[in-house]
């Protein structure tokens, strides 16, 4: 089966200063699983996808699909289906004509147009002009275009963007099914929780560089620490006992007498307090949010960090 191979890929834009949108990127997207392509806005996800499709030219490095540069593929829609920008369609065309002309260019049979319209739930809207479509419908049309050639590789840039909750459930199921059929599926997003719900593997970018290329399970295990919340009648002894075992205890943020033990499971704390006879009123294990782990990973590489500047209007003025 076909994989996407990105090797030492670099893309620089020359303006007043040279900006590196993609910086020495190397990774491979394997068939048979959904790969989540993560990173904050401006991390280089869309640029990488455009480079794979030959729409942008790399400054150096290569990107291939099944070992061949995309531009050398004879009928590329049969090999790779891509959704880059759901807005990228002429608004005066009908959805059906948009798909018809794409199908015609790659010698795809006309019936594929009807099939993908059905599959994406657009059959009723196919005769309407794209300008009348909602964002979610445009997104579905973009996905329909990607599926047109029944390709072995799918590359979708933020496909859930603008979809309603029902649509999000639909797209998750579709991505899982496409991967289960043995296809290579690369899906970009800037939301970790959303992506971890359907991706088997994660490729994380920050400032154009590769930050992680790991199975989703491993990422979750490595980056989201266990912790335990405990409410006790004897915090002093609890602290002493846990400290002796190498755990640190801090007061929970809500500060209503609960204590938080980082890096421990509820079973371990339960056993320890029982042995020492410390009264425990409440005991709950929880995991630090995956989103937080992801934000921590990308924080130093973040392009656009939010700064809270004092507003001039709020500062007192001296007269």
């Amino acid at each position: 089966m076909t994989s996407i191979d990105v090797r030492n890929l670099t893309k620089e834009y020359r303006g007043r200063q040279v900006t590196r949108a993609v910086d020495g990127l190397t990774f491979r997207v394997e068939p048979g699983r959904v790969t989540g392509f993560l990173g904050p806005n401006g991390a280089g996800k869309s640029t990488t996808m455009r480079l794979v499709l030959g729409l942008d030219r790399p400054t150096s490095g290569t990107a291939t699909v099944g070992g061949r540069p995309y531009v050398t593929l004879a009928e590329p829609l049969r090999a790779v289906g891509a959704l880059l920008d759901a807005q990228a369609a002429h608004p005066s065309r009908t959805g059906r004509n948009h798909l018809r002309l794409l199908a015609a260019s790659n010698g795809l049979p006309e019936r594929r147009v009807a099939e993908v319209l059905d599959e994406t739930g657009l059959a009723d809207a196919a005769g309407r002009r794209i300008r009348t479509y909602s964002l979610g419908m445009r997104q579905r049309l973009g996905i329909a275009a990607a599926l047109l050639g029944d390709p072995g590789v799918l590359m979708l840039d933020e496909p859930a963007n603008g979809l309603d909750p029902e649509g999000i459930v639909w797209i998750r199921g579709l991505l899982r099914r496409l991967a289960a059929e043995g296809r290579t599926v690369l899906v970009s997003s800037h939301l970790m929780n959303e992506t971890s719900a359907f991706a088997d593997h994660l490729v994380v970018l920050g400032r154009g560089r590769l930050l992680a290329d790991v199975p989703t399970r491993d990422f979750i295990d490595a980056h989201s620490q266990d912790r335990v919340r405990v409410r006790t009648g004897d915090p002093v002894r609890l602290r002493a006992v846990l400290r002796a075992k190498g755990w640190t205890v801090g007061e929970a943020p809500d500060g209503d007498g609960r204590w938080v033990v980082e890096g421990a499971s509820a079973e371990e704390i339960g056993a320890a307090t029982a042995r020492e006879g410390i009264p425990v009123f409440e005991l709950a294990g929880e995991r630090a949010s995956l989103e937080q782990a992801y934000l921590a990973l990308t924080a130093e590489a973040a392009q656009f960090t939010t700064r809270t500047a004092a507003s001039p209007a709020a500062s007192p003025q001296e007269v």
Partner: peptide, 18 residues
């Protein structure tokens, strides 16, 4: 110019990369 409306050219060149 219809190819330059909303970046339609991206779709066109993804379908016909030559």
């Amino acid at each position: 110019s219809s190819e330059y409306l909303n970046g339609a050219l991206r779709n066109s060149l993804a379908a016909v990369p030559r």
